[in-house]
Structures are given as C-alpha cells and as structure tokens.
C-alpha cells in the first residue's frame, strides 16, 4: 500500500461506546486503515470509551485487539476504568492503563501524535 499524507502518526481519542453511536466503530476502522498505510496509530480510551476495551464485547473491541496485534497502542484512563467497574482481567490483552490520564494524553497530543481525532 502506498504511504499517503504528510503525517506519520495518528491519535484517536474515544470517549463514547459503540452502543451510543457509530463513531467509535468508524474511528477504529479508520485507525486500522491508517495502520495499513504505514501510519503509527494510538487509541486513547476515556470516559465511557473504556467500555470498548472489554474483551469480546463487540466489533470495536475486536478492532482494538487487531490494532494491538499490528503494533498499535491502546491506552486506557485508569480513573475511568475504575469508575466503570471493569475488572482488569476483562480488558483486552495488551492495553495500557494510565494512572495520570490527562497528563499522558496531553503529552501524546502535543509531542507524539501528528494528527488527532476526537470521538
């Protein structure tokens, strides 16, 4: 696949579940496509978005697993995982739960990712 665009890394921030609307599904598909085109892709799940990281919960979770398998990163906000009551063993393997999510997210947005999509 030809590499396109003038950026190398893409960050996707997801704050909703796929159950609310299709955006979560769409941006995960978009991220996977970007990976196919040679981009580094990271997903950051916070607020209700952390529900997408429950293993076996649907197509979005499957897409995130696929991203991890392909070298993508999936970060989770610790405070939202705790608030949601999701036990660690139910999370997709390979996700990284961050204790200071806002600090980490600012670093990713400002220093790591060339482009950012909010969902």
């Amino acid at each position: 696949m030809t590499e396109t665009g003038n950026f190398n890394s893409l960050g996707i921030v997801i704050a909703h579940t796929a159950a609310v609307h299709e955006n979560a599904h769409q941006v995960v598909s978009l991220g996977l496509e970007a990976m196919k085109r040679g981009k580094r892709v990271g997903f950051f799940l916070l607020s209700d978005g952390v529900y997408n990281a429950i293993r076996g919960s649907g197509e979005v979770a499957a897409g995130l697993s696929q991203a991890i398998s392909g070298g993508g990163k999936v970060f989770l906000s610790s405070e939202h995982v705790v608030a949601s009551g999701i036990p660690g063993e139910k999370l997709i393997p390979g996700t990284e739960t961050l204790e200071k999510p806002y600090e980490a997210l600012v670093d990713l947005i400002m220093e790591e990712w060339d482009r950012v999509i909010m969902c």
Binding site: A15, S47, V106, D107, I109
Partner: peptide, 18 residues
C-alpha cells in the same frame, strides 16, 4: 450532557500546567 465539557476543561488545564 456527556463528559466532554469536563474532559475539555481538564485537558486545557493540564496542557497549560505543562
């Protein structure tokens, strides 16, 4: 309505502090 307003404000504050 959602957590957007809170997330946006916390991100703004955190980025400024950095």
């Amino acid at each position: 309505v959602s957590e957007y307003a809170e997330i946006a404000s916390k991100l703004a504050l955190t980025a400024r502090k950095k």
